[in-house]
C-alpha cells in the first residue's frame, strides 16, 4: 500500500476561527478510511481543501506517485487528477436521465470541443451499463434523476464517482437519510470500490462506520485526535471526552 495523498501541517481560518489546525493525514492506495468527528471538527473543510474549494493558509497537500501539489490547482484540474467527491446532500442533475448523468461523469476528455464533437461509443455504453448494475439502477437508465428516491440518488452519485474512475473517492455522509437495507447496500458498494482505489468516508453514524470495518481517523477542532481501528479509537479516553464529555 503506497501513499496516495498526504496532507501535511495544513491550517485554515475563517474570520479568526481556525477550522483546520495543523492537520496531517495520509491516505494509501488502495485503502478504505472513515473520518469521524463531532460537528465543527473540520470534516467538510478537510474535503474542501483536498478538492480545491478552499485554499489553506499554510501547509502542503501532495498527491500521487509524482508528489505533485494540489494547492493552486482548480477544482476541475484536481478532479481530472483522479479525485472524486460526493457531497453531503445528493447532488445529481435532476433534469437529466440517469444515463446522461453517468455519461457526463465517464472518464473522457473534458474540453468543450471534445465534448461538442463527442460520439457515443460501444465501450462507453458498456461501462455505463456496468456501473448502473453496480449501483442497482440498471432498470432506471432512462428515468429522470429527479424521479429517483433519496437513496437511489445517493447511489447514482456514487455511480457518477465510479464513472469518473478516480484513484481517490471522497464520500460525505453517504448514509444520511437511508433505510437500513439501503445502508447495507451502500457499505458493500463502498467496500467493493475500495478494493482498487482509496475511499475516504466522512460519517456521523457509528453503526455505519463499524460496518465499513476499516481504519478510522477522529477529527476534533481541526486536527487529528486519534487514528486506528474503530475499537481502538472508541476506547481512547480523549475521544470519549470529546464525544460525551462535552454534554
Amino acid at each position: 500500500m503506497s501513499t496516495l495523498l498526504e496532507v501535511d501541517g495544513v491550517s485554515v481560518s475563517f474570520d479568526g476561527f481556525r477550522a483546520i489546525n495543523n492537520l496531517s493525514i495520509q491516505i494509501g492506495e488502495p485503502e478504505l478510511r472513515a473520518v469521524i468527528g463531532p460537528n465543527g471538527a473540520g470534516k467538510t473543510t478537510f474535503m474542501d481543501i483536498i478538492t480545491g474549494k478552499t485554499k489553506p493558509d499554510e501547509g502542503r497537500v501532495t498527491w500521487g506517485d509524482r508528489n505533485i501539489s494540489l494547492l493552486g490547482m482548480s477544482e476541475s484540474e484536481i478532479a481530472m487528477e483522479g479525485i472524486g467527491r460526493k457531497f453531503q446532500k445528493p447532488t445529481v442533475f435532476e433534469d437529466q436521465t440517469v444515463r446522461e448523468n453517468l455519461a457526463m461523469a465517464l472518464h473522457n476528455p473534458r474540453g468543450p470541443f471534445a465534448v461538442l464533437f463527442y460520439k457515443k461509443t460501444q465501450e462507453g455504453a458498456k461501462r455505463i451499463k456496468e456501473i448502473a448494475t453496480e449501483i442497482g439502477l440498471s432498470d432506471s437508465l432512462t428515468r429522470r434523476a429527479g424521479e429517483l428516491s433519496h437513496g437511489q440518488k445517493q447511489w447514482l452519485e456514487i455511480g457518477m464517482l465510479l464513472a469518473q474512475d478516480p484513484r481517490l473517492l471522497l464520500v460525505d455522509e453517504p448514509a444520511a437519510g437511508m433505510t437500513t437495507a439501503e445502508r447495507e447496500l451502500t457499505t458493500d458498494l463502498l467496500k467493493r470500490a475500495a478494493k482498487t482505489r482509496a475511499v475516504v468516508v466522512v460519517e456521523h453514524d457509528m453503526e455505519f462506520v463499524r460496518r465499513l470495518d476499516c481504519k478510522v481517523t477522529v477529527l476534533h477542532e481541526g486536527s487529528v485526535l486519534a487514528e486506528g481501528s474503530l475499537d481502538h479509537v472508541t476506547a481512547d479516553q480523549t475521544v470519549i471526552d470529546v464525544y460525551l464529555g462535552r454534554q
Binding site: 437529466q96 455519461a103 465534448v115
Partner: peptide, 19 residues
C-alpha cells in the same frame, strides 16, 4: 448535458472534472 448541468449545479460539474 454538460451545459444544463452547469445551469443546475455549477460546482458539482466542476468536481466532475469539467472546466
Amino acid at each position: 448535458s454538460v451545459i444544463k448541468a452547469i445551469r443546475d449545479n455549477e460546482s458539482r460539474v466542476r468536481f466532475l472534472g469539467y472546466h
